[in-house]
């Protein structure tokens, strides 16, 4: 949290550009979402709309529930035995916790990029081809090659790796690994990409590359990003949601939240009083 406080002392470093579609129709709708981990009430009555084809940033101190909420959107909390989710989350008016919904197909629509780059111990090619293979998106080798190439180009990694697609993905640098993970997520053509602190393990230069990438792909994807860096939230997002102690405190346009927040807690957090 030390880095955040340092950054937060000058919140409006670079006012974000106006969103291209600031008030587009919501892609994801959450109503009264509660999450319990055993006895711990991790997320309390979160009600939030996430707009389509824009970047929404979740900010807040550690343990505030922002990652928990992110993991509700593709039901990754299902893999945690003690987690219990209640409330309503809809993607395109479809309840994703509906028992008839196939979680495997949901996750193909909602890609995820993790905090620590986690390429599979396979070749670069196989990493990207993983999703298309398991979902049967390519009919033949040529189509698969095309998907891999397109995904790597979208993740602006193609030029760096095109001559060594057979090399192992774990041999890349940290920033390249994270862009590989983004390419891997893009390869299954998701509608939504969730990013859980994607730059926290990267150096500033690699972080800048990933942020540029987010800026490029946000026209085609709905992106939700959890970040500890207020500068990053200001740079990449059009909307911000501030979480504190499991409660969604405030949400709105990025420049509004950073320049004139309504809530005292938001004000304190972005100016570095706590967190």
């Amino acid at each position: 949290m030390d880095t955040t406080t340092a950054v937060a002392s000058k919140p409006a470093v670079a006012p974000p550009p106006a969103a291209t579609q600031p008030d587009a129709a919501p892609k994801i709708i959450a109503r009264d979402v509660n999450v319990h981990y055993g006895d711990k009430h991790a997320l309390k009555n979160v009600t939030l709309d996430i707009p389509e084809k824009a970047v929404m940033a979740f900010i807040g101190p550690s343990g505030c529930g922002k990652s928990t909420f992110l993991r509700c959107i593709n039901r990754m909390n299902d893999t945690v035995a003690s987690a219990k989710v209640s409330g309503l989350i809809q993607i395109d008016d479809q309840d994703i916790y509906d028992p008839s919904l196939d979680v495997v197909q949901l996750r193909a629509r909602v890609g995820m990029v993790f905090q620590k780059p986690n390429p599979f111990p396979k070749s670069i090619y196989e990493n990207v081809a993983y999703g298309p293979r398991i979902h049967g998106l390519a009919r033949n080798k040529a189509e698969l090659d095309q998907i891999v190439e397109d995904s790597l180009k979208k993740a602006s990694l193609w030029n760096e790796v095109k001559d060594r697609l057979a090399d192992t993905g774990t041999g890349l640098s940290g920033g390249q690994q994270q862009r590989l993970c983004i390419a891997r997520a893009i390869a299954v053509s998701p509608e939504i990409i969730l990013m859980d602190e994607p730059c926290s393990a990267l150096d500033p230069i690699a972080t800048a590359r990933v942020e540029e990438l987010i800026e490029e792909i946000r026209r085609n994807y709905t992106i939700v990003i959890v970040t500890h860096s207020m500068q990053q939230a200001a740079r990449v997002s059009q909307r911000v949601a501030f979480f504190h102690l499991g409660v969604l405190v405030e949400t709105g346009r990025t420049e509004k939240i950073f320049q004139s927040p309504n809530d005292k807690r938001t004000q304190d957090y972005i100016t570095g009083r706590f967190g």
Binding site: T79, M112, F114, K116, N118, Y130, A185, V188
Partner: peptide
């Protein structure tokens, strides 16, 4: 590492696909 499994589940792989391929 659990992160590899998460990566695979996050792609929409089932449990046995994750085990077999990752």
């Amino acid at each position: 590492p659990q992160s590899l499994r998460d990566g695979s589940y996050g792609m929409g792989a089932t449990r046995s696909e994750t085990i077999k391929r990752v």
